[in-house]
Computed example of a mutant assay.
Amino acid sequence: MPEPVILLHDLTKEFPADPPVQALSAVNLRVERADYMAIVGPSGSGKSTLLNTLGLLDRPTSGSYRLDGLETISMKDNARTTIRGSRIGFVFQSFHLLPHRSVLENVMLAEVYSAARRGGRRERAMRALERVGLPHRVDFLPGRLSGGERQRAAIARALMGEPSLLLCDEPTGNLDSKNTDAVLDLFDELRAQGMTIVVITHENDVSDRAMRRVRITDGVLTEE
Rank of each mutant, 00 (worst) to 15 (best):
M37E: 01
N106C: 09
P163T: 06
E111L: 14
R30N: 15
S86A: 02
R131G: 05
G147K: 13
L97N: 07
E14N: 12
M108D: 04
V103P: 05
T61H: 07
S177R: 11
V112Y: 11
V132T: 08
C168L: 09
T82N: 08
L56N: 02
P19Q: 12
D218S: 11
Y65D: 14
L190G: 06
G173R: 13
D139M: 15
R30V: 15
E170K: 04
D18V: 12
I83C: 14
H9K: 15
D185G: 08
P163A: 05
R118S: 04
S164W: 01
M108W: 10
R87Q: 11
A17T: 04
L190K: 10
R150F: 05
V214T: 11
S102V: 14
I88V: 08
P4D: 01
L29T: 05
M37W: 03
R84H: 14
R191G: 15
S62N: 13
P135F: 10
S164D: 03
F90W: 07
V103A: 10
V31R: 05
P19T: 08
H202E: 00
F187N: 09
L56D: 00
D77Q: 05
T201Q: 04
V40M: 14
P163I: 04
H136C: 08
H100V: 12
R213Y: 00
T81C: 13
L159Q: 00
E111F: 10
G219W: 00
R101C: 12
L129I: 06
V27A: 05
R122L: 09
R121M: 03
I197A: 12
D35R: 06
V91N: 02
P19R: 08
L186W: 07
T49N: 14
V91S: 09
L134M: 12
L165M: 11
M195E: 07
V31I: 15
K13A: 07
G133F: 02
L186R: 00
L186Q: 06
H100E: 13
A17W: 11
R30A: 14
P2D: 12
V31Y: 03
L54I: 00
I216S: 07
L145I: 08
P163M: 03
S25E: 12
P60Q: 11
E170F: 02
G41E: 08
A156S: 10
A153W: 01
L29Y: 00
R124G: 01
I73V: 15
R152I: 04
R87A: 03
R124M: 03
R152S: 07
V31K: 04
L67M: 08
R131F: 01
